[in-house]
Nucleic acid binder design. Structure first.
Length: 229
DNA sequence: CGACGCGGGGAGTTTACTTCA
DNA sequence: TGTGAAGTAAACTCCCCGCGT
């Protein structure tokens, strides 16, 4: 029954894992006494539901009288969750041997470990998607604001009846193309550079503002955000 | 090379349970 | 203190894909 876990307190908790030590089908060992042992989660006030889950979840109460297994739901203890999280940090998928070993260590069924990893992957992906969505929203807002500013600038230049500034390349003495505003979608830092000074291999977020556009308004050409920041 | 079975993973859903107003 | 809505997470189902035969 002994499980190697970091602290003595966690060992105590693990001994009372729902669905294992409290299972009615298991003979009560001397120091635990079957139902006498409860899930001792120091951060959680025991509830009626907890009592319920303890009483209904067992390793071998697979089916009821109809032959259909009742849908049961256990709550993983903090130690179990921590260990699963730790394992998830190491690898997001488990091979059968790892699954078996982890299940044994956690006193869970391999299927439960498998389900936990499935759900964990799903949560991870959801979180990632939400973060990307937020990032894109901020990026969009920033670009919108930038667009407004540039349009104002164009209007002002038009009002002055002054053509777009022509910058000569220090190397070739040829006019440079339109400036390129580069913004990092993560930290939203914006830098303005001449097109010929950019590293052609860089795939940074670039918003090309063509001030000499015949149509009047500057054209914004959003590109994919880069991972490099 | 295609058909078949099997196992694993993703996506979506259900359901038990908790939290909070 | 009781209750219902909302949130969370375990468990389920379906489908697809890769792999071995």
């Amino acid at each position: 029954m002994a499980v190697s876990l970091p602290s003595p307190s966690s060992l105590d908790l693990t001994l009372s894992t729902p669905g294992f030590s409290t299972s009615p089908s298991l003979p009560s060992s001397g120091d635990q006494g079957g139902y006498a042992v409860r899930v001792l989660d120091i951060n959680q006030i025991p509830s009626v539901a907890e009592e319920y889950s303890i009483s209904i979840v067992g390793e071998d109460d697979e089916e009821n009288a109809n032959g259909t297994p009742p849908r049961k739901k256990l709550r993983l203890s903090k130690e179990q969750s921590c260990l699963l999280e730790e394992s998830f940090r190491q690898h997001h998928t488990l091979n059968p041997r790892q699954k078996e070993a982890l299940a044994l260590q956690l006193k869970l069924k391999p299927r439960q470990v498998e389900v936990w990893f499935q759900n964990r992957r799903a949560r991870s992906k959801l979180k990632q998607t939400e973060m990307e969505c937020e990032c894109l929203k901020r990026w969009f807002g920033s670009l919108t604001e930038q667009n407004r500013r540039l349009q104002r600038e164009v209007e002002e230049l038009r009002a002055m009846k002054v053509g777009p500034p022509i910058v000569l390349s220090p190397h070739t003495c040829q006019p440079l193309p339109a400036s390129v505003i580069t913004m990092c979608p993560r930290c939203e830092c914006v830098t303005t550079t001449s097109a010929d000074r950019r590293d052609p291999t860089t795939t940074s977020v670039a918003t090309a503002v063509n001030l000499s556009s015949k149509a009047g308004a500057p054209t914004l050409l959003p590109q994919q955000p880069s991972a490099a920041c």
